[in-house]
């Protein structure tokens, strides 16, 4: 579904991604872990071109999206993204947050879009919040709405950039539950996270990134139980005390 070939990204002189090659298959839940500053968020943001890669190629559903000819807006409609800071639109109600994409970009009617939104809200258990504004919601609720907003575009893949890192601990669970639910339904997902429990339980493949490269890649079970590289061993020993 996504093929990444020798992806590079530099900010000025700082090389953040030093040539990453991998692929994401349909239905996979790829979990990216690693110390902060290792380039995992940058890698994720390159996938939907929120960061413009400085080298390499990304092929999504057969199209080289890194080529100048590709229509980045069309591609992003098929790649939902969820941010650490939620980034809900504060001037719009929950309902409008979810429906604005389908209405403006897929020329869906208000009625149709609201029907989709209501079913999404029901799925995340927030149908009573449709008329609320984001500032009336808790962090966990905001993030679930943000997930619904991305899902409303019916994307083929969902990108999660540390979706639980800005949450109070007691709200992490409700967001992870939504992610688990999605994974169970067969959604293709790429998740950058520090939640090792989630990575182990839900991930179908783990990436361990450090200093702009993929240091280790493997099944969650083998990665967590017998990490092969020394850097992964050090990282895990610090995290899983």
């Amino acid at each position: 579904m996504i093929d990444v070939k020798n992806l590079k990204k530099s900010f000025g002189k700082l090389e953040v991604l030093k040539g990453i090659s991998t692929h994401v298959d349909k239905g996979e839940v790829l979990v990216i872990v690693g110390p902060s500053g290792s380039g995992k968020s940058t890698f994720l943001r390159c996938l939907n071109l929120l960061e413009q890669p400085t080298g390499g190629e990304i092929v999504f559903e057969g199209d080289a999206i890194t080529s100048k000819k590709s229509d980045v807006n069309k591609i992003r409609q098929k790649m939902g993204m969820v941010f650490q800071q939620f980034n809900l639109f504060p001037h719009l109600t929950v309902m409008d947050n979810i429906t604005i994409g389908p209405r403006k970009l897929k020329s869906m009617s208000q009625k149709e879009a609201e029907k989709v939104a209501v079913s999404l809200l029901r799925r995340i258990g927030l149908e009573d919040k449709a008329r609320s504004y984001p500032n009336q919601l808790s962090g966990g609720q905001k993030q679930r709405i943000a997930i619904a907003r991305a899902l409303a575009m019916s994307p083929d893949v969902m990108l999660f950039d540390e979706p639980t890192s800005a949450l109070d601990p007691e709200m992490v669970g409700e967001v992870l539950d939504v992610l688990k639910e999605l994974a169970k339904e067969g959604m293709t997902m790429v998740v950058v996270t520090h939640e090792m429990g989630f990575a182990k339980e839900v991930g179908t493949r783990i990436f361990f990134m450090d200093e702009g490269i993929i240091v280790e890649e493997g099944e969650p079970k083998s990665f967590f139980e017998n990490p092969k590289t020394q850097r992964a061993q050090e990282f895990l020993s610090k995290i899983l005390r």
Partner: peptide, 22 residues
């Protein structure tokens, strides 16, 4: 916040539309 523009672009809005609605 620049996250607003990113969120709007991430659902596929062109720059102009994101400006106008978000």
């Amino acid at each position: 916040d620049k996250g607003q523009m990113e969120a709007a672009r991430s659902i596929g809005m062109p720059h102009r539309m994101a400006m106008q609605y978000i």
